[in-house]
Structures are given as C-alpha cells and as structure tokens.
C-alpha cells in the first residue's frame, strides 16, 4: 500500500508537472499489481524496457471519465467509466498517429490516434460502476460514445471497440 501511495504521488507529480515527469526520466513508475495493459511502440515513457506497463491502480490514478451509451452488446444502456485514451496517449508520450490494440483472444484492431480526442474514446475500466471480469469483456474495453453520433454506430467503430484489451502498440 505504501508503494502504491508513492506511485500515486509520483504519477500525480508527473501529471501535474509534465516537464518534471519528463525530467524524472522518460520512465513511468513500475506497476505494483498485476499488469493488465502494456503499451509499446512510439512512446516516450517507459517502465518496462521499451514499453510501459500498467496495473489497474495506475490506470485509475491517471484520472477518470465516464459516459452512458447504447451498445450492440447489451440490451440496455451502459455506463462506462475509465481513463480517456487521449490521456493514456499523453501519459506514455505517444508520438504515433495510430495504435494497434490487441485483445486477450488476439483480436487486433487499428485505431487512429485522432479518434481519441475527436470522439472522447474511453479506456473503460468499469461498467455500471463494476470492474469488468475477462468473462464479461474485462478487464479493459476501448469504447466510443456511440450515442453521440450516428457515424459511430457503424461497423467501422464497432470493430475498433476492442474488449479484453491486453496491449497497445503506438505506430
């Protein structure tokens, strides 16, 4: 718990003072718990070689955002909450234009980085306030606010919505 608290402190430092975080080394704090996401590729912040690894508390520490939307996968509207993808890209100092997201079942999808800011794409951690198990599209799920635009209610964006996300490569 102490370590976790320090990590939080550090991350908050990094968040509040990017220049300081950068000076503190292009490195991120090490994940304390089980790594649930690995980011690699064209990024500027690392904590595991050329990639950055994150456990759930780290991801939660970067801030939270949420929205409610209809999806093809649930019969009812669902409220997703988690880290905005744009935030994640910032944290890892991503410099690429797109990302290759890979799920636990090896599903791959390519997403332009521009989508994140444009549509406020969320790296959902919770669904309806509950952490998501692997058996129900957890632990991480890239979701779009589908109700915000009819454009988003298409196969193009549904295919970019990767559940059981395991890693991201910035290209």
């Amino acid at each position: 718990m102490r370590l976790t608290r320090r990590a939080v402190l550090l991350s908050s430092l990094a968040a509040s003072a990017p220049g300081l975080a950068r000076a503190a080394g292009a490195s991120l704090p090490k994940p304390q718990g089980k790594v649930i996401l690995t980011v690699s590729g064209k990024i500027g912040a690392f904590n595991a070689g050329n990639s950055a690894e994150f456990d759930r508390p780290m991801l939660e520490s970067f801030g939270s955002s949420s929205f409610t939307t209809w999806t093809p996968w649930y019969n009812d509207p669902v409220t997703f909450s988690g880290l905005p993808m744009a935030k994640l890209m910032h944290m890892v100092r991503a410099t690429g234009t797109s990302v290759l997201a890979t799920a636990l079942n090896d599903y791959e999808t390519r997403i332009p980085v521009s989508d994140f800011a444009q549509f406020n794409v969320l790296l959902a951690i919770k669904r309806n306030g509950q952490y998501m198990p692997v058996s129900d599209k957890g632990p991480l799920f890239i979701v779009y606010p589908y109700d915000s635009s009819p454009e988003l209610k298409t196969q193009k964006y549904y295919s970019r919505s990767a559940w059981q996300l395991a890693s991201i490569e910035v290209i």
Binding site: T71, P72, W73, Y74, N75, L104, N105, P133, V134, S135, D136, K137, W163, Q164
Partner: peptide
C-alpha cells in the same frame, strides 16, 4: 482459466444484444 473466461465472455455475447 483465462481462455475459459474468454469463452464465457463469448457466451455472454451470444445471450445479449443484437446477437441474442
């Protein structure tokens, strides 16, 4: 266990939403 959960996830998918 992981793959079981993945399959479980698939079962859920078949029982809800548009697939259902």
């Amino acid at each position: 266990q992981l793959w079981l959960e993945i399959v479980e996830n698939r079962v859920r998918l078949l029982n809800s939403g548009e697939v259902a």
